[in-house]
Structure formats: structure tokens, C-alpha cells
Amino acid sequence: MNDVFVTTADWRTGKALRDIRQRVFIDEQQVPEDLEWDALDETATHFLLYRAEQPVGTGRLLSDGHIGRIAILPEHRGAGLGDQLMRAIIEHAQAQGMDELLLSAQTHAIAFYQRLGFSVCSEVYLDAGIDHQDMCWKASDQVEHSLADIEFISPGRFSILNPDTESEQATRYPEDDPALTPLNEGNAQALLNELVTACRQQLLVFAPEQAAWLFKRRDFIGACEALIARNPKAQIRILLQSVDPEFLSGHTPLALAHRFPSLCQVRRQHPDLPLQAHVQVISDDRGFLMLPKARQRDGFVRRDSADQAKRWGDRFNELWASSQTDPTLRRFLL
């Protein structure tokens, strides 16, 4: 589902986090407010699950590997969103070097967490008046079992139908949302260049070092140069999460900042803020490109999405306000 993705969120500005937990835990499950809101929220890594551009699920990860506050809004349950949310949190935890995870599960959800590799590790106990059991997850236990060999019998000759490339690329998802175009490795470069070409004033790029295959390209650099040529007052802002030495060489967006320092700025996200899994491009106040998981080369593009461009543009500006000029970047730009 290209319209579903998970991202980390800042607790201090994460109104959606609190709204979802208010509805699910306090309003629906009658958890007392003084138990729901605790001091751990200030230091936890929080996650938001978006569906069709709306935040519909949340969860948090503590520094000791405890996962909690997993909630999906009632009207969005039954679509596998909880599974996607949990897998994103587990993936994030492993990226942070956490090989053992813990959670306190309501007993009715035990089977759900078991399917994700968790094992029950306590007796039943009451928490906020609801039956719970502790569950544990270890990376060393997540062993994929090899499939048994099967006997293959050739069906003989058969015809192969190669789908028409143009019609395949024109397919949109979902069918009732023609403004969304699925992005994959085959069409990503063309869609990105199209988005930059449509830009007139401001281009925001978040974490391009996570998708070097897309941004370390001469055609992307050329599209940005064309934007500057079209509008000498255009602004390109590029926010990195980490300064990868490999990203500093070759056809890199950093070269734009070196050549056009007043028009193109490159900074690094504040190191105390949680890392994000996604990559984004926001073109003016309408165009939007998202790779929900940088490691996976698929996502979507919206050419006219004012709401999404504003929401993520505001989030970009928050990160930019606390960002830094990394020493490595400073040396590169001198």
C-alpha cells in the first residue's frame, strides 16, 4: 500500500500522537489520564502511521527496547496497519542496535505479537484495569526456515506476455486517486526530474544521502541547475541526517551548494533528534515525493497536494530550524 507509511515524530510538536492515544486509550479503553501520560514520552522515540495522508496509528520505543502505546484508530483497524507499524518500529530498533525488545501486551493481542516473533515471558497481570502479559523479542530467534524442496514438472511450451511498458507505468494507485503516482526504481528518476522541473520557487529535499541511487545523478543536478536558471531567486534547501563520506564525492547535491551558496543550502539534522526512515522532496506548496522507507526503492509522487506539502513542509522547517552546518560539510563547501 503506497499510501501507507510510518515515520518518527517529535513529541513536543506531535499533536497527532496525543490525539490518537487520547481516542484509543483514554476515550475507548478508559485508561486514566494520569497513567496514559508519563515522563517517558519526553525521551521516547515516537512513531506515526499515515494512511491516505492522515495519521491513524501511533507507537513508541524506549531507549531500553520497550515498545508501547501501539494504537490504531478504530475506523482503520482490520487492514493490517498494526502489523506495518510494528514492523517499522522493529526495523528502527534494529537499526539502533537493539537486538532484544520488550512490550506489555493486552491478552487479546497476544496472537498478533506472536506472529511478529514475540514470545510470552510473564504471567497475566493487571495494568490500568486490563489483563496484560509481558512479551519478549530477540533478533537471534528470528530465523527464517528454509522451504522444503518441491518436485517441479515442466508444463512444456507456453507463451509469455510482456505488458506494455508505457501503460504499466501509467497505472496509478489507488484507482480512485489519480493525483497519486506510484514510484519505483524504473520511473523514479523521471518523476523526480519532473517534480523539480515544475518547481518555481522553493525545493526542499530531506535525507537524500539515504537514497543516493536517486539523488547522486547528473540529471537531478541538472534539473536543479535549470531551476536556478529559471529563477535566480529560487531556494533549494537540502537536509541530511548523516554526512556519509561516500555521498560527498561524485555527482552530489552538495556540489550545488558549492557553486550556488546563496541559492542552495545544505545542513545536517540536529544529532539529538531521532533518525527518520523516509526520504522526501517538496516542490513549492504543491508537489510532493515520498519514499516511506529509504531502503526500499518504491514510494509515490503527488503533483498537486497542498495539504501534504504544507504538513511535511512545516515538519521540514522545524527540523531545519534546529539543524547544523556539519564540520565535514563546512570543509567541503570551502
Rank of each mutant, 00 (worst) to 15 (best):
A16V: 02
R51P: 00
V24Q: 11
S323G: 09
A294G: 05
N2K: 06
R315P: 09
A109G: 13
V24F: 05
L329H: 03
E91S: 12
D131A: 08
C121S: 13
P292S: 00
L191Q: 12
L248Y: 02
A170T: 01
E53A: 15
I72D: 07
E166V: 06
E225D: 00
L214K: 12
L275P: 02
A198F: 01
P155K: 14
F47I: 05
F332V: 06
V6D: 13
L180Y: 01
T252Y: 08
G299L: 07
H46F: 13
W312S: 00
D219E: 14
L191E: 13
S122N: 06
Q142L: 06
S262L: 15
S167C: 06
I67H: 12
L48N: 01
A257M: 06
K233D: 12
V243K: 05
M290D: 00
L248H: 09
C199H: 01
L192N: 08
A128R: 02
R77H: 14
F158V: 06
H258P: 04
R286S: 09
R311T: 14
V281L: 10
E33A: 13
E175I: 03
R311E: 15
I26L: 11
S249I: 15
E91Q: 10
R69T: 07
V120G: 04
T7I: 12
R267F: 09
R302H: 04
D244F: 11
Q29I: 07
Q201E: 13
V4R: 13
